[in-house]
């Protein structure tokens, strides 16, 4: 069953075609990578999924509901490239806010917040203010905000951006465990190709607003590295 279905979607900013007749389906339970060079339209695609921009043409749905409906975002967690929240919130308060916004309250909320913080390894930071933790800890807190709502689909926009190698490794392990142990559908928009090759089963490459290739990563690569494959594809398309 498909959790994301895009059918001929087009988005223009003035004369610039950010997405040009993009069609894509993503199955439930898969770990999917959306790749592409800067300005390819990846962020516009993510924003379209969340109903943050209006499409000029085509249909886009989450769980069978059009993204123009707020209910399409039920069970969807979104981690932006630079996760940030109001600095006066504590780590616990921030995650609790996301829990409440997902309809959780009372004792259930406390239990789920603690559980999400423990899973992401930031439980000991729960009383710290958001602006007093490191970038890696902030990203982990961001992941905790997705877990507290028990989101079925996690949309991660450049989740490794700005993280050091240790932070990348920790976050990668966390994402992989979520996919394997909790059967979450994970949609990752990233530049870090080496990590995507290891983490994701399926991918699509966007260039100049168009999908240039999509499918299972290993069957597409045929032994070459994703970096080489990507480089040849984009250079050939230029």
């Amino acid at each position: 069953m498909n959790i994301i279905e895009a059918n001929g979607i087009t988005k223009k900013y003035g004369r610039h075609m950010a997405l040009d007749d993009v069609s894509l389906t993503i199955e439930k339970g898969s770990v999917f990578a959306l790749l592409g060079p800067n300005g390819a339209g990846k962020t516009t695609f993510v924003k379209s999924l969340l109903g943050l921009v209006r499409l000029n043409k085509g249909e886009l749905s989450l769980n069978g509901t059009s993204v123009t409906e707020a209910t399409s975002r039920e069970g969807v967690g979104y981690l932006p490239e630079k996760f940030s929240f109001y600095p006066y919130y504590t780590v616990y308060g921030c995650v609790a806010f996301f829990g409440k916004m997902n309809g959780i309250s009372g004792a259930d909320l406390h239990e789920k917040v603690e559980e999400a913080l423990a899973k992401t390894g930031v439980l000991e930071l729960k009383d710290k203010k958001i602006n007093a933790i490191s970038k890696g800890q902030l990203q982990r807190t961001g992941i905790a905000t997705l877990l507290v709502g028990d989101s079925e689909l996690l949309i991660l926009d450049e989740p490794f951006s700005g993280l050091d190698p240790l932070g990348i490794k920790e976050l990668k392990d966390l994402i992989q465990s979520l996919a394997k142990e909790e059967n979450k559908t994970i949609f990752i928009n990233s530049h870090i190709l080496s990590e995507m090759e290891k983490m994701c089963k399926t991918m699509a490459i966007l260039n100049k607003g168009k999908i240039v290739v999509k499918g299972e990563i290993q069957s597409l690569l045929k032994g070459v590295s994703l970096e080489d494959y990507f480089y040849k594809l984009i250079k050939g398309d230029a």
Partner: peptide
Amino acid sequence: ESSSIGQILAFPIQ
């Protein structure tokens, strides 16, 4: 200004 608008509107709210 704080870029939190995208995160808030990504919730299932009108």
